[in-house]
Design a protein around this nucleic acid. Sequence first.
DNA 1: TTGTGTTTTATTGCCTCC
DNA 2: GGAGGCAATAAAACACAA
Length: 272
Amino acid sequence: MESNSFFFDPSASHGNSMFFLGNLNPVVQGGGARSMMNMEETSKRRPFFSSPEDLYDDDFYDDQLPEKKRRLTTEQVHLLEKSFETENKLEPERKTQLAKKLGLQPRQVAVWFQNRRARWKTKQLERDYDLLKSTYDQLLSNYDSIVMDNDKLRSEVTSLTEKLQGKQETANEPPGQVPEPNQLDPVYINAAAIKTEDRLSSGSVGSAVLDDDAPQLLDSCDSYFPSIVPIQDNSNASDHDNDRSCFADVFVPTTSPSHDHHGESLAFWGWP
DNA sequence: TTGTGTTTTATTGCCTCC
DNA sequence: GGAGGCAATAAAACACAA
């Protein structure tokens, strides 16, 4: 099985387990331990899982490339992936079983799962970010079209108001002849319609002209999107959730995602 | 071939849970 | 206090463009 076939031979007399787990060979350690090595020590480094006997074996030097941090074979990775799909946490029994099956140290299996969970979490974060971004973009586009509609309606109201005032002035011209408003007159109907509509649409500038009794709201985020801003109580949200924008609460998922075997991410986002 | 960026394997240190 | 998880990190292995 290629150059690293010894991975699959747990019965081999290398004593790999002790050699690896017992840290008897500092030159094969990674991370901080390695960083402390000088150049001379580095040049003497031997492959992973080599036994003291191997180090004196010429054939060993022929067979094994120096400085090897061996990757798992595709078969090993495949089996580990399958196992990870079933359950992303590793109970001691399963770890031992998998290690035996793969010819790896239980520690290696545990490390692989640890790293795999980290990779999965990163991917999940990317997916969540993409989802949030597309939701945000869609909301932004909706907001823009609503603003445009609103501007259009406002200018319509203004022009109709001006027309109405002009008509009234013309009608008042002959002294002593103040006609009763004819309820069938299109102008009257229009004005009444505007008045009703204006009451329904809170915060229109036009309402100030037509109806001083209508509620006067500030032209703010709150006034135009009352249903968006305070959707739900976020009192138990984390600290960084408190500095939210007008749209922040819109991103609350409408349904809780189902708990799958990767429940870790759900917890990460604070979902129950 | 070589420089550089990415992925994978592994360690370390800290934290939490039992 | 030991076991296990996670974040941060190192370093080998790998991919790939110039």
